Structures are given as structure tokens and as C-alpha cells.
Amino acid sequence: MLPETNFTTTSNRTTTIPNSGDGGCPPVGIQLEGVILPPVLTVDVILGLLGNTVALWIFCFKLKTWNPNHLFLFNLVIADFMALFSLPLRIDSLLRGHWVFGDGLCRINLFLMFTNRSASIALMTVVAIYRYFKVVHPHHRFNRMTKRQAAFVSVLVWLLVISPRVPMLAYNHIKGSGNNTQCFFFTSYKEASRAIIILVAMHRMLTVLEFIFPLAMLLFCSIRISSFLRARQMGKADKLRKAMRVCAAIVAVFMVCFLPTTVTTIGVWVIRSYRPWDCATFYTFTQLTIVSFGLNFLNSALDPIVYVFSSSMFRKALLGALSCAMRCGQNTGENTPSSSGTQSTTQEELKSMRASGDT
């Protein structure tokens, strides 16, 4: 699924459908998608399931008390599972070379993947803003937020994220037929209805706005926290590092996962709109978009790092669980030789008893 690139891939060959407004450029070959994306997305799913399952277990069974920050992070776990549940279908489609799950699952699959990106960005931004007020404005009423109010904020975030994506569920995104069936959101303008064209335009705006504004807010929060603590906590480098870890982790995940997709997608749009004759650049950005698509969902695997840095209670619960697991493993290993040692000791005692009895 590439932005505005309509293609079909079979197991034995690659079939391309000319891009809309291609300006005379031949169709773009997409063999790279079937080679790179399956292993990349598989790694995303494995690491994401491992990290987020542990995070969900800690949130549900190990945290004794919850605060607004924990509630925001828990919603981020939910957003990650939206992608983790949808990506296996996409991997299967790439490996088979066609989509076999029908129109309904195609709509849900695309909806979950796009919503995951928007929700992850929005919730990470909320976590950073919450930390900003805690550090820079400790007496602000925002810091007296109750769990009920935090739940309201979470619901509001989900409504803002989901609302623009709901129309995606109303239209058929299946292209082709038989073994060439594919599940795409973007389609050629030559065959698209006016409603689909409006959805594509809305997606363009959301892709840009949901990245630029949150990135600006994240950088603002990071810079303000750093300058505030340097001015008031001179000589206390540990406190500065601890406070900055949250924003630094969020910014790092944000840049690694979402910046490449945004840049390459905008590049494809700009070239197709203003330089339709520049085929070489268009091909380059298209292939880069394929590669960056795998990074886009790496956030599901990296978000557990945000949980660790954002909550000391989560960190302590995780360390406690790990130390308990290590102790259990050590005890199991120690029990085996000790039991054998006990058996050998018992045998020696029996031998000595027999020897004494013989005497």
C-alpha cells in the first residue's frame, strides 16, 4: 500500500498499473516492496507484540495506582495493538502477491493502519505536554488533572483521530480481480470517484498537519524543559537527564518512525503535481516511500521505550518482574545440582551405614 501508487504483485511477476497524471513516465516497478516490506513488517510485529504485551500486563496487573500519565500511556498501547492486529494481513498480502480477505477486512485494515499513525502521534504529544507542565509549570491547574479528566482527554483525542478516518470505511478499496486483487486506499484519478478524490486530499492534509504541529510542540516542550532545568537545577545533572529522557525518547521515536514517511510521501505528491516529467526523481521517491512504510510501524516496537522513560512506576514494575524472572530461573538451575548433590550424599550415607553395620 503506497501513497497514490496503484499496482498489483503476483508471486511470479510484477504487474504495474500506470499512475495517474504520470506525465509520460512509464509505470513504476515495485518489486522492492515484496522484497523489503515482509521481513521489516514481521520484525515490527514480533518486537511490537513482545513489548506491548509486557506493557499491557504491567498496566493491568502490576501498577497499584494510576495517574493521568499512565492513562495516556495505556491508550498508546491500545493504539499500537491496532497496527499489530492489522499488519499480519498486510504481510500475508505481500507474501501471496494479492489480497484474499475481502472488501470488509480491507476497509478495516486500512482504517486501523492510518488510525494507528494518527493516534500514536497524538498520544505521544499529550504525554510530552503533560511532562512539560509537570516540570515547567508545577503549580498550574493542569497538573491537578484527575483520572476522570484524563479519561475525558483520552476520549477527545480518539474522537479527533478517528473522525477524519471514518469515511474510509464507507468505500470499497479493492482493486483488480482474482489473483490480482489488491487492497489500496489510493487509486488512479482516472477511475476514482469525486468522494475518493476528496478522501485523498483530506489524507494529504492530515499527513502533513498531524506531523508538523505535533513535532513543533514536541521540540518546544523539550527546549523549554531543558532551559528551565538548566536555569534552576544547576549542578544537578541527574535530574536534568531524567526529565529530558521522556521528551528525548518521544522525539527520537517520532523522527525515526514518522519523518521518513512524511518526507517521501510529500515528495511524491510535489513531484507528481509540479514536475510530472521528472521520472527519475519520481521513481526514487516512490522506492523510498516503500522503504519508509516499514519504519512507519516501527513505532509499535519502540513505544515501550517511551513507557519506561515516562513512568517511574512502570519502570519499577518492569524491573521487579525481570528480577523475579531471573531469580526464578536461578532457583530452578540451582535446584537441579542441589538435588543431585542430595542424592549422592544420601547414597554415601547409606554406604557408610552399610559399612558400619557390616563391622
Rank of each mutant, 00 (worst) to 15 (best):
I212H: 08
C247M: 08
A192Y: 03
R275G: 01
V45N: 06
T262M: 13
L159N: 01
I121K: 07
N143L: 04
I198C: 07
F185T: 02
F74T: 14
I271W: 01
E4G: 02
V251F: 04
L37Y: 00
R275H: 13
I198M: 13
Q287G: 00
F258M: 03
P138Y: 01
R224K: 13
W158S: 04
H70T: 05
F61M: 12
E4I: 01
Q343G: 11
T289R: 03
F72D: 01
Q31T: 08
V40L: 11
M82N: 08
S323W: 09
A83S: 10
L169Y: 06
A355T: 06
L229M: 14
Y283S: 06
A301L: 07
A237M: 04
N143H: 04
S273H: 09
L95T: 06
G333Y: 14
I174R: 00
L50M: 14
A317Q: 11
S340G: 15
F59Y: 10
L94T: 00
S300L: 03
I198R: 13
V45K: 03
S356M: 10
L219K: 02
V136G: 05
L318F: 14
T125K: 03
C247R: 01
I196V: 14
V100R: 13
R275M: 09
E210R: 07
N180V: 06
I91R: 00
E349M: 13
W277C: 04
F211S: 06
M113D: 05
F228Q: 09
Q287H: 12
L37S: 11
M217C: 08
R117W: 08
V135N: 02
A325G: 12
Y132C: 01
V54M: 14
P304E: 11
F309M: 13
N69L: 05
E4Q: 04
A243D: 09
N331I: 15
G102D: 08
R272F: 01
F111K: 04
S118Y: 14
E191W: 02
H98V: 00
D103F: 01
G329S: 15
L50F: 15
I17K: 00
E191S: 09
G97S: 05
A280D: 13
M217K: 05
V155N: 04
A128T: 09
K316F: 09
K316C: 09
A249M: 14
M124L: 10
L350Y: 10
G104I: 08
M234T: 11
A79F: 04
P167G: 05
